[in-house]
């Protein structure tokens, strides 16, 4: 699960998966922009079936937060 999320997130942000660490604040990545944000939202929807409100999404700060989101929705 963790690996799948990290690899999908890296792909959405056009980064190498090895650069993505659990504690990273993903909005601080150089490649994070209003355009790549769409790819992240699309990835959560199509790869993990996660449909969330932006208000909720905006509360998530770190890669770990996204991993927890994916784990909680899948349980």
């Amino acid at each position: 699960m963790k690996e799948k999320l990290i690899s999908a997130l890296a792909e959405a942000l056009e980064m190498d998966a090895s650069q993505v660490k659990h504690d990273d604040i993903f909005r601080d990545y150089e490649n994070y922009s209003s355009l790549t944000e769409l790819s992240v939202l699309a990835m959560l929807d199509s790869d993990f079936g996660i449909e969330i409100e932006m208000q909720e999404f905006n509360n998530y700060k770190t890669v770990e937060d996204l991993i927890n989101l994916v784990s909680s929705k899948q349980n």
């Binding site: 209003s34 944000e37 769409l38 939202l41 699309a42 929807d45 449909e51 969330i52 932006m54």
Partner: peptide, 11 residues
């Protein structure tokens, strides 16, 4: 607000 609209539309 492109991201919010996108997120709403795909849902």
């Amino acid at each position: 607000n492109g991201a919010d609209v996108f997120n709403f539309v795909i849902r």
